[in-house]
Nucleic acid binder design. Structure first.
Length: 1012
RNA sequence: GCCCAGGUGGCGGAACUGGUAUACGCAACAGACUUAAAAUCUGUCGCCCGCAAGGGAUUGAGGGUUCGAUUCCCUCCCUGGGCACCA
């Protein structure tokens, strides 16, 4: 008998599988006996210099075992692999050693491929992909352009997360605990021009889709929390602003100062104590905006305390005023046209002329920082898209409303009046507490601080606070131990719309600019944070909710004995409901008090009513748009050209891919520009539209771009015409099982779902959701229970195990360690247990085979029963991916029958079952037994339910629920027979002696319980 | 603070819808083989009392439902993960 030489056997079979192309998945295959397709996916690796590690092995083996099993069941299985090869390590290596990333990447891929093959994984190599291959990233760029064309890829300047070590911007998802996901540096804030993908537009769809997925709850919940939906109300609080004295109304081109809403508006504003000016403008018909602007400057009192309302063409004039350097407090644009093309089909020469002259929006924003844009959803003349253009150029929100009359021309337009009064919009999930709002807080970044500069008496102090807050990192600002800080905006008061009372306005960094409206109504009696702040600064606290009188331990707030404890916890039952409908940070529902006509209502009832009364119901998400540009070299170039004249121009599809040019220096500049910016002959191009000189976008895409659609490419890896043929997609997608790590839940998995949902909406993808089932795996920890890491020196290299014990042992041990979804600790000593088992299988098979009679041998009843039990157990465990217990059952089987002679057929069946786990040894032994083809081509064994059944049953005898004995009875015996048998037992009789049996509980073939 | 997952021998872990808790493996101990060791094979092996037969307690803690609870319910503790001044 040969020794079990795992190294030799494994190489032999790996070569065999490759040559016979056993694992190639054929598109549309419907050959005889083949069932449905199965698309089994694992996260493709980043080929790093260190090679693949245990973290890769675990999901890959799981996917492999499952794939081999499913193929044998007759499924057409696709189990593909590729390389996610863009990324920083290769680039950093290039910086250090001057080796081009593509060179080191190719080398690393070669090594990783060698490793994967040595593990005996049944990947279909004919579908191998590489994200850094121009033929691949061509389509990554192409998809980006689809986002761009749909308006979901946009450029904006904003405060973004910046990693000072990697010298690049980061997405929100890449910041973990205020640190860079990749290198652990503390993330800074930096104002930069960036590309964004509008993932927020898909927030609701991403949430909805989750419901349809067969994913573990913990994964779904994590995505849900990340998207962070809360329903609440937006409420305007009026701001009294003593410095604004004067309103100037500029009417549209075909009207006069007496027309439209002007007389009514004048009356309203005068009643509020303002001075109004409204001129009849020169040049009717097709007026000239510059001429009108000069006329206004000459005839109106204009200064930094003036608000200008421009209706229609009047808005154009207002913008011209600003461009001329006129400083104004605020400009309200009402249905102001931009394009010159009107909805009634007419071209307005005056507007076209003004647009052609060009507005310098830099100058305009310099002159005034406070704009309101009002657009009518029912405007028959000026299109909403004009408003959107202004919104983009001025970087302010667009207010879309239904005007009372067409084009805001009715005699009264209340929305216009409302826009005239400065106000502060807040978002709250608890509008029912509005009567308790005793002050307001804005985030340090809130523009209202600049806008009300002239009205803020302590502006210097405020400014100092704002500057300090902006300098602090996210970690410092959101640190929990930190005491609340803030400064009152003196001279500014807000009006609580519920009580009519004037309340102070503060700036404080506990209010975040990134969420909601960046401003809150503070209800210190019912919000922990507001309470803390109010205590510190001595602000009034007013209780408006009475909690259900409940004996639960309320948390008494020290020093607040006068008021009923504001944070008294209410009824517990409401807590879980709250997450369902409305999320609440710190407060529970109760009965309203001190709340005018709402007093006595329950919170649940009051919330929608009060939201409608004082504002409107809205939805907020924590999800932010995806910062999609990186200031680094080794990534997909963003296929955009910047032209002075035509603006942002997408690279025409025929010019894709935009290839990475060779560079000498890979160092990131750190200034927020990519190293590509220095390659002038690459940067300078002709504008595809006007053919004038233009410049390429030099930012590249983030790591996650290539992996956001790679599973689609596997279905059609070589296609030159399209990213993935729709027929092939339709056959293969969605992915049936996706093995991978928990760490990708709010990164890769979220991004991929977003891309897929978008492409689905574009009609480019056939499956709405990309991954039907997700199987996350636990981390493989080192023997000491810590994470494996080089610095700890506790890393187990899979290559070493392959060398010493063999790939089959490595695979099986990895699976045997524990449940696939839980973290497990590697144990060097444990590995030998599996190797011993395989050794025994080797010896046992050889010895059985030596038995000359094996050909004619018939199995005993016991062997048959044990075998069929094994088939049942392994099949069921594999379906549920319970690999560890399946392996245990092989050992049990072996322990039970190792002394018995077994038939050839039984050994073969055993090897067939073992094949997915330990394919090399199974193939070798099967061949030794005379098998002519790969076990992969055998049908998966089926068990006979009749043979699984035991003839005799061991029934446990309990007395009062305690085990007192055991009886052997024929399977299926009735209660009386078992009871009689049980009473014969000494131990049982002893317990019962002298006491009558009150009751008997009998579970067939399992247990009899005598109650005395 | 909130949300998930989990807590079972010396260790990794089993236990189906409430029905023999500790399968399987590791480690440990004893024996066989050997000049010896390793390897291999055979056996023992959760804890306490007992020579034994047998008995008792036991699945993080406490309580409850039940003939019977690792499993269901309540309260609490601990570990891991996620979110976090998100209004």
């Amino acid at each position: 008998m040969n020794k079990y030489d795992s190294g030799k056997i494994e190489k032999k079979w790996q070569k065999y599988w490759q040559q016979k192309k056993i694992f190639q998945a054929k598109d549309f295959s419907k050959s005889a006996g083949q069932q449905t397709k199965k698309y089994v996916l694992v996260e493709f690796p980043y080929p790093s210099g260190e090679g693949l590690h245990m973290g890769h092995l675990r999901p890959y083996v799981a996917g492999d075992v499952y794939s081999r099993f499913k193929r044998m069941q007759g499924h057409n299985v696709m189990y593909p692999i590729g390389w996610d090869a863009f990324g920083l390590p290769a680039e950093n290596f290039a910086i250090k050693h001057g080796v081009h990333p593509s060179v080191s990447t190719a080398k690393n891929i070669k090594n990783a491929k060698r490793q994967i093959q040595s593990w005996g994984l049944s990947f279909d190599w004919s579908r191998e992909i590489n994200t850094t291959d121009p033929n691949y990233y061509k389509w990554t760029q192409w998809i980006f352009l689809q986002f761009f064309k749909a308006g979901l890829a946009y450029e904006a300047t904003g405060m973004i997360n910046w990693c000072p070590k990697d010298k690049t911007g980061l997405a929100n998802e890449e910041v973990i605990d205020g640190k860079c996901e990749r290198c652990g540096s503390i993330v800074e804030k930096k104002e930069l021009r960036q590309w964004y993908l509008k993932i927020t537009a898909y927030a609701e769809k991403l949430l909805e889709g989750l419901k349809t997925l067969d994913w573990p709850d913990r994964v779904k919940v994590q995505q849900e929390n990340w998207i962070g939906k809360s329903i609440g109300a937006e409420i305007d609080f009026a701001i009294s602003q003593p410095r604004v004295r004067r309103f100037v109304i500029l009417h549209g081109r075909a009207s006069t100062s007496k027309d439209n809403f002007y007389p009514w508006l004048k009356k309203e504003l005068e009643a509020s104590g303002f001075e109004i000016q409204a001129l009849d403008m020169p040049g009717k018909g097709e007026p000239d905006d510059l001429e009108q602007a000069k006329f206004v400057m000459k005839n109106c009192m204009l200064d930094e305390n003036t608000v200008v309302i421009g209706h229609s063409f009047g808005g154009v004039v207002a913008l011209r005023l600003l461009e001329q350097g006129m400083k104004l407090n605020k400009v309200i644009l009402v249905a102001t046209p931009f394009s010159g093309k009107f909805l009634d089909g007419k071209q307005r020469v005056s507007v076209s002329k003004a647009v052609q002259k060009g507005f310098d929006f830099g100058k305009i924003k310099n002159s005034c920082q406070n704009f309101t844009l009002l657009y009518g959803t029912n405007d028959p003349v000026v299109p909403l898209s004009d408003g959107e253009e202004f919104s983009r150029l001025l970087n302010v929100n667009l207010t879309k409303i239904q005007s009372s009359g067409p084009h805001f021309q009715s005699k009264e337009e209340p929305e216009v009046f409302k826009a005239c009064l400065p106000s502060l919009k807040v978002f709250t999930t608890r509008p029912d507490t509005i009567f308790g709002a005793t002050y307001m807080v804005v985030a340090p970044e809130h523009p209202i601080i600049r806008n009300l500069e002239s009205g803020i008496r302590n502006y210097e102090e405020v400014q100092k606070y704002v500057e300090k807050a902006k300098k602090e990192s996210e970690i410092q600002r959101t640190s929990l131990e930190k005491e609340k800080t803030g400064v009152e905006l003196k001279g500014i008061k807000a009006v609580n719309p519920a009580t009519g009372e004037e309340i102070p306005v503060w700036v404080a960094d506990y209010v975040l600019w990134g969420y909601g409206t960046g401003a809150i109504m503070a209800v210190p009696a019912h919000d922990g944070r507001d309470f803390e702040f109010a205590k510190k600064f001595g602000l009034p606290i007013k209780s408006v909710i009475e909690y259900n009188p409940s004996p639960h331990k309320g948390r008494e707030i020290p020093g607040n004995t006068a008021e009923p404890s504001p944070l008294m916890r209410g009824d517990v039952a409401s807590a879980s409901e709250a997450t369902e409908r409305l999320q609440s940070a710190a407060i529970d529902y109760g009965i309203l008090i001190n709340s005018g006509k709402f007093t006595g209502m329950k919170s649940e009832e009051a919330i929608p009513k009060m939201a409608a009364e004082f504002g409107k119901l809205t939805v907020q998400y924590k999800l932010r748009d995806w910062v999609f540009s990186r200031q680094r070299y080794w990534g997909e170039p963003i296929p955009i050209i910047h032209c002075e004249k035509c603006g942002i121009v997408p690279v025409p599809e025929k010019d894709l891919p935009v290839k990475l040019p060779p560079v000498k220096k890979y160092e990131p500049t750190g200034t927020g520009e990519s190293p590509l910016a220095a390659i002038s002959n690459w940067v300078n191009v002709k504008c595809p539209e006007c053919k004038e000189p233009a410049k390429r976008e030099t930012n590249t895409m983030p790591q996650w771009a290539g992996s956001s659609w790679y599973w689609l490419r596997y279905t059609d890896p070589g296609d030159k015409k399209i990213f993935a043929d729709k027929k092939k997609q339709k056959y293969w997608t969605p992915v049936d099982v996706y093995f991978g790590g928990m760490e990708h839940t709010t990164l890769h998995l979220l991004y991929s779902r977003f891309w897929n949902l978008f492409l689905y909406d574009q009609g480019l993808v056939t499956a709405k959701e990309p991954f039907a089932q997700r199987k996350p795996h636990g981390i493989v920890l080192a023997a000491d229970g810590e994470k494996m890491s080089k610095s700890r020196g506790n890393v187990v290299n899979p290559d070493d195990i392959v060398k010493s014990q063999g790939a089959d042992t490595l695979r099986m041990y990895e699976m045997f360690l524990g449940p696939h979804e839980l973290s497990v600790s590697w144990n060097d000593q444990g590995v030998v247990g599996i190797r011993r088992f395989l050794d025994r299988v080797w010896v046992w098979t050889n010895e059985q085979f030596k038995n000359k009679k094996i050909e004619r041998l018939k199995d005993s009843e016991k062997v048959e029963r044990v075998l069929h039990k094994l088939i049942k157990k392994v099949t069921e465990d594999l379906e549920e991916q319970r690999f560890n217990t399946a392996i245990a059952s092989f050992m049990e089987f072996h322990n039970e029958i190792k002394q018995e002679p077994v038939s050839l057929k039984t050994i073969k069946t055993f090897l067939t079952l073992l094949y997915p786990f330990a394919p090399h040894i199974a193939e070798e032994l099967n061949q030794m037994l005379g098998g002519k083809k790969s076990l992969q081509l055998e049908a998966w064994p089926k068990y006979d339910p009749a043979k699984v059944v035991e003839q005799t049953a061991e029934v446990v005898v309990q007395v009062n629920g305690r085990v007192r004995g055991k009886v052997s009875v024929p399977a299926g015996s009735g209660e009386d027979a078992v009871k009689a048998e049980a009473l014969k037992q000494d131990a049982v009789a002893k317990q019962i002696a002298g006491i009558g049996i009150k009751r008997v509980i009998y579970v067939k073939d399992k247990l009899i319980n005598l109650v005395i």
